[in-house]
């Protein structure tokens, strides 16, 4: 702990960049690779200026082949490096699904623990910026299905800045999902920044009447909904999952045991969603705490539309979250 702390204002994007810069400075084994991460500064501007500071050996532009450069990252990790692979969007990570699921997640287990894959894969997820269906889906729930992976979803500047260091220190492959709508989010960070835990949920707003479970890009919407609800004297607790795998079961159950009502917000589609996993958990282990049926607020089951009014209509909103919460309290 430093004796002096100050706060400063910056964006989620800048917070991510600071995390990258610190990691690159702290450990020579760390390097970043991906499409356009160097000269262009990253498709979403996260790695801007890093090429100048760290050079092309450590900020590496790659060909347009997710499978190839993710596989290269796995090889580098097996070889003792600490690679950070940037995949432009989760949609494109499907091209690297074989590397991530069949190799990265499995090698430690298939080798009887002889080989660790300390790989970090960063990717953008989510909709809300009129980037159309090929760039807007929320598939992090698919990865959360796979043992051997850790799946993170930073929803605050603090986590954007702080999750990378413990992710690199972890011997398992870690996927970090950055919601596209958050890059421009402004906020303040303490200086020096606080360390954060790799996993474990966090209560972003305590409340007593209903639990709003959210993560990543849905977190600000849930917090907005909680403010709306507060005006109606409904005291909502907002629980930020932070990590989808491992899921912090205890935090979810403890919150539901306090509020007895739950709304799960998940920008993915409802069918087979991570929200379904959370609701199933509550039903299995906290049924007798429930005072109302659980609610899910998910995206409408269509490929995310390009047109703004349709895209807005398809996604969870603070209004829909608040309406679901009101149903749980019977108002």
């Amino acid at each position: 702990m430093s004796g002096t702390t100050a706060t400063r204002t910056l964006t989620y994007r800048e917070a991510l960049r600071e995390g990258l810069r610190d990691a690159l400075r702290a450990d020579e084994r760390v390097f970043l690779m991906g499409e356009d991460v160097g000269a262009y500064g990253g498709s979403f501007g996260v790695s801007r200026d890093l090429l100048g500071e760290f050079g092309p050996e450590r900020i590496r532009d790659t060909p347009l082949s997710e499978s190839a450069f993710t596989g290269a990252g796995i090889g580098a990790a097996l070889g003792g490096m600490r690679p950070i692979v940037e995949v432009m969007t989760v949609n494109f990570s499907l091209l690297a699904l074989d590397q991530i699921v069949n190799n990265a997640a499995a090698i430690a287990h298939m080798s009887g623990g002889q080989f660790a894959v300390p790989l970090v894969v960063r990717m953008t997820t989510g909709a809300g910026r009129q980037l159309a269906a090929q760039h807007s889906h929320s598939l992090e729930g698919w990865y959360a299905h796979v043992p051997g992976l850790k799946v993170l979803a930073p929803g605050t500047l603090e986590d954007a800045r702080g999750m990378l260091a413990p992710a690199l220190a972890d011997p398992n492959p870690v996927l970090i999902f950055e919601h596209g709508s958050l890059y421009g989010l402004e906020g303040s960070l303490t200086d020096p920044p606080a360390e954060v835990a790799l996993t474990g949920a966090a209560i972003r707003r305590p409340g007593s009447d209903v639990t709003l479970v959210a993560y990543g890009g849905s977190l600000p919407k849930a917090l907005d909904a909680a403010e709306t609800l507060a005006a109606d004297r409904i005291d909502a607790e907002v629980l930020d999952l932070r990590a989808l795998r491992p899921l912090d079961d205890a935090a979810v159950l403890a919150s539901v045991a306090r509020t007895h009502r739950v709304v799960v917000v998940d920008e993915a589609w409802r069918t087979g969603s991570f929200a379904a996993e959370v609701v199933a958990l509550v039903a299995e282990r906290a049924l007798y705490e429930l005072d109302a049926p659980p609610e899910r607020v998910c995206s409408v089951e269509v490929p995310i539309p390009y047109a703004k009014h349709l895209e807005d209509a398809a996604l969870p909103s603070a209004e829909r979250i608040a309406a679901a919460a009101r149903r749980t309290v019977g108002r």
């Binding site: 607020v297 409408v300 269509v302 539309p305 349709l310 209509a313 398809a314 829909r320 309406a323 679901a324 149903r327």
Partner: peptide
């Protein structure tokens, strides 16, 4: 469900 916006018609 009061909450659901009109489902975009495919």
């Amino acid at each position: 469900p009061a909450s659901s916006p009109p489902t975009p018609r495919t």
